[in-house]
Computed example of a mutant assay.
Amino acid sequence: MSTMHPSERELSLAPRAASDEDEALDDSTNGSLGPTGRPKRHIPEPPLLNGHGPAKVLALCNQKGGVGKTTSTINLGAALTEFGRRVLIVDFDPQGALSVGLGIPAHQLDRTIYNVIIERSTTAADAVIRTGVENMDLLPSNIDLSAAEVQLVAEVGREHALMRSLRPVIDHYDYILIDCQPSLGLLTVNALAAADGVLIPLECEFFSLRGVALLIDTIEKVRERLNPKLEITGILPTMFDPRTLHSREVIARVVERFDDIVFDTVINRTVRFPETTVAGAPITVWAPRSAGAKAYRQLAREVISREVAMAR
């Protein structure tokens, strides 16, 4: 899949005030068109598996915070298990939000991803925790990981520390999802160096567009210098509000620029997601019939479909 080089100017979207009439509009009149403005495409039922592994490693990455990386990691992982996939989700953010979002008291843990990448005596298998979702495991994180960026600077092959740590468990899973921190520092570079693909959650808001060019530039550099197999799996529009003209204009600009790289699945704003954080469970478990749960199941189908298509 080809990657584009958008400039910040090309991705900019001049904000304008929306009228009350604009705010009331939604996409319910688009008929066969999805929220992206494209015709809805048929996504086939994911094929059954005869066995598990080796895992497809996906980094969920965006240097802007609050765009839905952690929410998407948890819920995509849970949705993938419903299609018979075995999933490992990796909390690679010192804030440990992914661990907390699954009800894991990360600050009390003796072994986390920090120990795995820094201590030779600790393996990924030593730190993996089973979650409340069958076939979904967690490699947790806490504030200790913030020290890793400094400690890795003097290491030989510092950009490949995470890849070396994950290698022993690759064959045990079908997907490994890495929740990256909101920055483009050494930890994020490690995630990109270990990944087969990058999934970019993109908030449907003007300022979120401004950092996309920088992120894609970083992905290009990692591909050229560290990881030739790295591809952009897709861009996932998040926090979409179909009632506002602004959300629809942002999504239209993203689709115009990135075309098929943008997933058909769009994640709407909903109060359900904050509720799941308190509950410590994915939305597919907490509110299995909700629109949010259905959206992440659809995303899981798209992710599997793209993997199958790229393997041909």
Score class of each variant (00 low, 15 high):
residue 147 A to V: 03
residue 89 I to Q: 04
residue 252 A to W: 07
residue 298 Q to M: 10
residue 201 P to Y: 06
residue 217 D to W: 05
residue 189 V to Y: 12
residue 8 E to G: 06
residue 87 V to H: 08
residue 295 A to N: 03
residue 76 L to G: 00
residue 264 D to Q: 15
residue 226 L to D: 04
residue 254 V to D: 03
residue 132 G to P: 01
residue 94 P to Y: 10
residue 156 V to P: 14
residue 90 V to L: 03
residue 78 A to K: 00
residue 189 V to E: 13
residue 188 T to G: 08
residue 162 L to V: 05
residue 43 I to A: 02
residue 182 P to G: 08
residue 29 T to E: 15
residue 302 E to M: 08
residue 155 E to Q: 15
residue 296 Y to D: 03
residue 232 I to S: 02
residue 264 D to R: 02
residue 212 V to M: 15
residue 86 R to L: 00
residue 209 L to F: 08
residue 144 D to H: 08
residue 177 L to G: 04
residue 59 A to I: 11
residue 279 A to T: 00
residue 5 H to F: 13
residue 244 T to N: 12
residue 37 G to Q: 12
residue 19 S to L: 09
residue 91 D to H: 09
residue 26 D to F: 01
residue 127 A to D: 05
residue 105 P to G: 05
residue 78 A to W: 02
residue 156 V to R: 15
residue 209 L to R: 06
residue 59 A to M: 12
residue 238 T to D: 03
residue 95 Q to M: 06
residue 87 V to N: 04
residue 90 V to S: 06
residue 253 R to L: 11
residue 236 L to G: 01
residue 2 S to E: 15
residue 86 R to P: 02
residue 62 N to T: 12
residue 56 K to T: 01
residue 13 L to T: 05
residue 53 G to F: 04
residue 288 P to R: 09
residue 173 Y to T: 06
residue 51 G to A: 14
residue 173 Y to Q: 06
residue 209 L to H: 07
residue 54 P to F: 02
residue 67 V to T: 10
residue 112 T to S: 03
residue 101 G to W: 03
residue 70 T to W: 05
residue 106 A to M: 01
residue 16 R to W: 11
residue 286 W to P: 00
residue 142 N to K: 00
residue 101 G to Y: 06
residue 190 N to W: 10
residue 176 I to W: 13
residue 278 V to M: 14
residue 214 L to F: 13
residue 21 E to H: 15
residue 39 P to C: 11
residue 184 L to H: 07
residue 45 E to K: 00
residue 244 T to G: 09
residue 10 E to G: 04
residue 255 V to F: 03
residue 210 R to E: 15
residue 111 R to G: 01
residue 166 L to V: 06
residue 73 T to E: 02
residue 238 T to Q: 05
residue 310 M to K: 13
residue 110 D to E: 11
residue 39 P to R: 12
residue 100 V to S: 13
residue 117 I to N: 06
residue 264 D to V: 08
residue 285 V to P: 08
